[in-house]
Design a protein around this nucleic acid. Structure first.
Length: 121
RNA sequence: GGAGUCGGCCAGACAGUCGCUGUGGCGUAAGCCAUGGAGGAAAGUCCGGGCUCCAUAGGGCAGGGUGCCAGGUAACGCCUGGGAGGCGUGAGCCUACGGAAAGUGCCACAGAAAAUAUACCGCCUACGCGCUUCGGCGCCGGUAAGGGUGAAAUGGUGCGGUAAGAGCGCACCGCGCAGCUGGUAACAGGUGUGGCAGGGCAAACCCCACCCGGAGCAAGACCAAAUAGGGGAACAUUGGCGUGGCCCGCGCUGUUCCCGGGUAGGUCGCUCGAGGUGUCCGGCGACGGACAUCCCAGAUGAAUGACUGUUCUCGACAGAACCCGGCUUAUCGGCCGACUCCCCUU
């Protein structure tokens, strides 16, 4: 994996089937008013990230891109602390109105909470 | 200096660190190096084309679109130039701007009457009654000048004419028709002629002219786990079934021969193009031509971001998804050019 800050394609949930697997069998869940994170062990030895930002959650493409970038950035910085899970982050209406720093703080909380409550997979 | 009209342009800049992605090079590989990486609207999907498949797309009907003229274009509902009408002191701007003496239909309220025409108040002669006359009443009629209604009332103004009036006659204006002149044309000008044809609505049906096959990159082509629905070619074309909205037409079902199939997933399509830039030539212009030069996103859970620093005018609307040409809508600020009106100074 080389650099621990990198975010290559292997660290992403890519296919529709993998998304379905996480949605249907998720073992753990951490959520607040704006974001929900689902987790499911993947047996790969590293974590992978998937994003589910619907048109309903944010109307404009620019807003959705912004939310995705913030989440990816946070995942990139925290992936070393995470177990071998497939994580799917779901956004809810109103996320785009939140500031970058607020979302980053919320995400950091989600990562540590999952790490604490969902150790065995 | 102020107010305004038209056209064009920019869409924070620079540096460092971390990260994503296309291409090229090196490397067994991990990776490293170089280089490219959202918009003027990428948007709405409202038009037009390319491309792909469907069925050979041909004919007719139906349906839809466009609508002053000419040109540009691959094409257009776009653009350019011109005409007509309207608005503005002006630079300029706006216009579904063909046909209502083909047909059908509609025209609230008010008004006598809204299109077959007609006559409410009026105006006027003759006749009768009454009467000294003027005038009055009744009545056969003649009128459409005046009043009143309305968004709109059967050409307008003036003079003549008349009982009163009337294109009844004349002049000018308007309108129709026929020549003429200019213009490719729309149209304009002018001449003669007709006494006037007879309201509006065609974003009501309609008529006329021109145009339009359907579906869309989740098109479509290829490689292929699973799992067992079939597929292709030739022949025949009666019946049955299906197929653009319908008909003609066309396809399937039938017989024979041949054969592995094609969902998850992947690859291609996928970016060199009606391409950009510069110079010259043709054209009032849209645009066209020649030469030179450049390669300028191609992702696929979907990349172009984060942090720090410096600086300024403190940064709007907003994110490519097959590709182009338009239109429309959103948008913080700012810059450039041409022109108009008003004021001041010399």
């Amino acid at each position: 994996m080389g650099n621990s800050q990198a975010f290559p394609r292997t660290a992403r949930v890519t296919s529709a089937g993998e998304y379905r697997r996480v949605f249907q069998n998720s073992q753990c869940k951490s959520s607040d008013r704006w974001l929900t994170v689902l987790a499911l062990g993947n047996g790969l030895g590293h974590a992978r990230l998937g994003l589910a930002i619907s048109r309903k959650a944010e109307k404009t493409a620019v807003g959705r891109n912004r939310v995705k970038r913030i989440i990816r950035e946070s995942f990139r910085h925290h992936q070393d602390e995470l177990n071998a899970w497939d994580l799917v982050v779901i956004a809810r209406p109103g996320v785009a109105a939140q500031s970058r720093s607020a979302l980053q703080a919320a995400l950091a909380k989600h990562w540590t909470r999952l790490q604490r409550t969902c150790v065995e997979s």
